[in-house]
Design a protein around this nucleic acid. Structure first.
Lengths: 255, 255
DNA sequence: ACGCCACCTTGACGCGGGTCAAGTTCGGGG
DNA sequence: CCCCGAACTTGACCCGCGTCAAGGTGGCGT
């Protein structure tokens, strides 16, 4: 079952609605309340954040932050999806992160206070709540418990990043295997033939997330298929050999 | 086989100076005082940390933390140097970080609380002060201002990591150019011929830090030399064309 | 002085994977 | 029912770089 939360690219009906008007929006408040950066914050603090937020409804493909610009604000995704990425000199794109409702955008950069280290743009129509870094600092000052939430989030990010760097040292089939293994654990559904997973994105996008291009990803899928590890049907994949997948993704090379 | 330097339950310690009896060592206290993780901590808090620290003098090549083990403690380097690295399936080593006196070891992992995401070992004889993650949490609880120091350090780490990932997308000459450029700004001394930089480590180690092998690094140096950007004399490098170096390191390709 | 050894350099070769260029499949609209 | 375009696949080709194998080069102890 596909969860199409937002309409396709042909939707020009709903966006660019409330830009200047600041009536407290329930969806904004809910998104801020759910944000993991300040899980321990009081409701009053969330209300204050909501009041200071500047909410924008934007179309698919809108640029949220530009790499290199001064990081004086950040955002929380109220609805829609976004992508954090970097463009190499040759124009190739590396996707760092895919963000969903409730996720913070560029919050680390705002904390660090330098410049945005990457680009961010929406990949669906989205609602975005902008906050200033001062608002974040005020929140920390008002409620020191929030600092703990931020610390755990940042520490986890650092750990994840080391894992990303390690993964980049593997070849593409191994990276794909690792991804499929993790995703199978997260959203896999049991079937008589094996674990079935939905990729949740077009393969071209997955290729970018794995740091490669569609052609090579396609060959990697073919290799996993030939090795009897998976079956591929469009963007649904049936995992036939979970432990074989895990072994390949962990960097073994036995065959 | 290497010696394990982490303090286990049975740490008898050939070179253990003060393990059970804690006569306050001045060097330990100074190192903890200088540690950027808690710059804002009071002297009293530092004294408390020093008292709870388990100090070990270890030989070169001692393993400090092992990737995958439970991250229940961390350390501060009192003297010497250490390396944080990962071993790929084929045994290739990627160096994440090179640590010096006053730097924390595995503190992020201790904060995150899962498992160590990488190995760490000394590259010189070193003195290491071990602390428990509880001690860190106690410090944060006692002095909330410390949380701010931790936040900025962690946020900067995340930003650095995105830069590392971006750099890995460049080819080796570009990575080397970027490294030389940064190092020239940091420790370069002006000479009539150009900026002179000391690499500060053997080239084989630099190769690992740049995510490659000595042979390829050597070719990269040859390319920069042939392009007239630098002159190489052992581990001292004279930068002849700073802006050319910066352009190459930023990912341009004009020549 | 000699030789040893660690470090670096250079050449030859193979493999992974990015790029260019055709197909192929699938879904939606006329 | 057919056409068209987007997404995916497959093949051919080339380049960067890791590996293996020889040489330098310089420091240091006997």
């Amino acid at each position: 079952m596909r969860s199409v939360a937002a309409p396709g690219p042909d939707s020009q009906g709903a966006h660019v609605a409330s830009d200047t008007a600041p009536p407290p929006r329930a969806d904004v408040r809910a998104a801020l309340r759910d944000c993991r950066l300040w899980r321990g914050a009081s409701d009053a603090a969330i209300d204050a954040l909501s009041a200071s937020a500047r909410v924008h409804d934007v179309a698919r493909g809108s640029v949220l932050v530009v790499e290199g610009e001064a990081a004086d604000r950040f955002a929380v995704l109220v609805s829609g999806k976004a992508r954090v990425y970097h463009l190499g000199a040759d124009g190739r794109m590396i996707t760092f992160e895919t963000l969903e409702a409730g996720d913070p955008v560029a919050a680390v950069a705002a904390l660090a206070g330098g410049r945005y280290p990457a680009h961010a743009e929406t990949v669906t129509p989205a609602t975005v709540a902008w906050l200033t870094r001062e608002a974040l600092f005020d929140l920390i000052a008002a409620e020191p418990a929030v600092a703990r939430d931020l610390l755990t989030d940042l520490a986890n990010r650092v750990v994840n990043f080391t894992s990303v760097v390690q993964t980049l040292a593997l070849d593409v089939p191994a990276r794909l295997a690792r991804y499929l293994f993790q995703r199978a654990l997260a959203v896999g559904s049991t079937t008589p033939r094996g674990l079935e997973v939905d990729l949740g994105m077009p393969k071209s996008e997955l290729a970018s997330a794995l740091g490669t291009v569609p052609e090579t990803l396609s060959r990697a899928f073919a290799k996993l298929r030939d090795d009897g590890l998976v079956e591929v049907h469009g963007r649904r994949v049936t995992v036939l050999d979970v432990r074989g997948l895990a072994a390949l993704g962990s960097g073994y090379d036995d065959e």
